[in-house]
């Protein structure tokens, strides 16, 4: 499986997509922006381009001839996606903390880039993975509808979360607050986010394996 990941990194994923997290991450420097968009760019740009790339380079045929198990093909691909997602989040979080230091006095109408917010982002990507990956592996070839459904779900989640963050005083206090109690809760939300992200991504991978085993190449 390690070799398959290496194959994707060296052949399938254009180097640009390893630079992109830095470019997009820098958007965190816009004061008080809707930071959800930063990670949505990953779903909007990186994923479709990447999967187009796999398709254009006949990756599926190339890989299925190699001495590898079908199960590992899926696992490796999920590992690559998750890896890229984590790269995006970590870099965005770094830029986010720079942003917080740069503009200490800004009033955040949208979520500030704190730990709680990153927890929400992880949940958003978890939802994206859970929908996109299993749907894609129904054919392991067509990704249009899977992408549409997954992006819609991720955006709905982000939209509702943001709406609650503005409308509901409880949620607002939880995510915008800077007191010790709120920060502790935000840290918990981040940990919960990590757990949800891990759980849903593993689930996505398992469902995808099941479906891919039925796919005729």
């Amino acid at each position: 499986m390690y070799n398959l990941v290496l194959k994707d990194v060296r052949l399938a994923v254009p180097p640009f997509f390893f630079i992109l997290p830095f470019l997009i991450g820098a958007l965190m420097l816009i004061p008080g922006w809707i930071y959800f968009i930063v990670l949505l760019y990953f779903c909007w740009i990186t994923i479709p381009n990447l999967f187009n790339q796999f398709k254009a380079q006949n990756d599926l045929m190339f890989t299925s001839v190699l001495p590898v198990a079908k199960r590992d093909m899926v696992k490796a691909r999920v590992a690559v996606i998750v890896g890229l997602e984590l790269l995006h989040i970590v870099i965005a979080a770094i830029f986010g903390s720079i942003s917080m230091v740069l503009y200490p006095d800004v009033t955040y109408y949208f979520f500030p880039p704190n730990m709680g917010f990153w927890g929400l982002n992880l949940v958003m990507l978890a939802i994206f993975n859970l929908i996109f990956i299993p749907m894609f592996y129904k054919t392991a070839y067509k990704f249009g509808w899977a992408l549409f459904a997954a992006v819609t779900a991720a955006m709905l989640f982000a939209g509702i979360a943001q709406w609650l963050g503005i409308q509901s005083p409880v949620v607002n206090d939880l995510f915008y607050g800077t007191g010790t109690q709120q920060v502790t809760l935000q840290a918990f939300i981040l940990i919960a986010g990590i757990m949800i992200f891990a759980a849903l991504s593993i689930m996505a991978s398992r469902l995808a394996v099941k479906r891919f085993l039925r796919v005729e190449l």
Partner: peptide, 17 residues
């Protein structure tokens, strides 16, 4: 397959398997 890739690079990946 991977037509934009150089022969050398493709071999390096394949041989690992």
């Amino acid at each position: 397959f991977y037509t934009r890739c150089k022969v050398k690079a493709l071999t390096d990946v394949i041989k690992k398997f």
